[in-house]
């Protein structure tokens, strides 16, 4: 299985949750969820990489005035993308659950 980078994971989850997004939307969601800014080129680089791996798909959207008449590129997660992080997420949540319990106990002592 190909390893999943931290940023790849976040962006993939954002795409899974919000269906179709373009770069700026991803940045906005990222900021809203993690309250942490992220640079656009970083997002672009990750998107290109994931597109090459087949985890996301893209198509051109409509042009807008704010973009100076340029078209958006809308990204969508693919089933392969979903499977790529599915197991990871399960494992993580399981691990997390145990940590929270243990910590709680230690803290109580």
């Amino acid at each position: 299985m190909e390893s999943v980078g931290a940023l790849e994971e976040i962006i993939l989850m954002i795409l899974l949750k919000y269906e179709e997004c373009h770069g700026v939307q991803i940045a906005q969601h990222h900021e809203a969820i993690l309250s942490k800014a992220i640079s656009l080129p970083a997002i672009h680089v990750v998107l290109k990489r994931m597109e090459k791996k087949g985890w996301v798909d893209s198509r051109f959207g409509e042009p807008t005035a704010k973009r100076g008449g340029r078209r958006k590129r809308l990204y969508k997660a693919t089933p392969a993308g979903y499977h790529a992080i599915e197991k990871l997420q399960e494992a993580k949540s399981k691990l997390w659950a145990s940590i929270v319990q243990q910590n709680f106990r230690y803290g109580a002592n």
Binding site: H22, G23, T64, R67, G68, R70, R71, K72, R73
Partner: peptide
């Protein structure tokens, strides 16, 4: 170019 420049403008 089109995608990146557009995104930067929008942002």
């Amino acid at each position: 170019l089109e995608e990146v420049q557009g995104d930067l403008h929008e942002a």
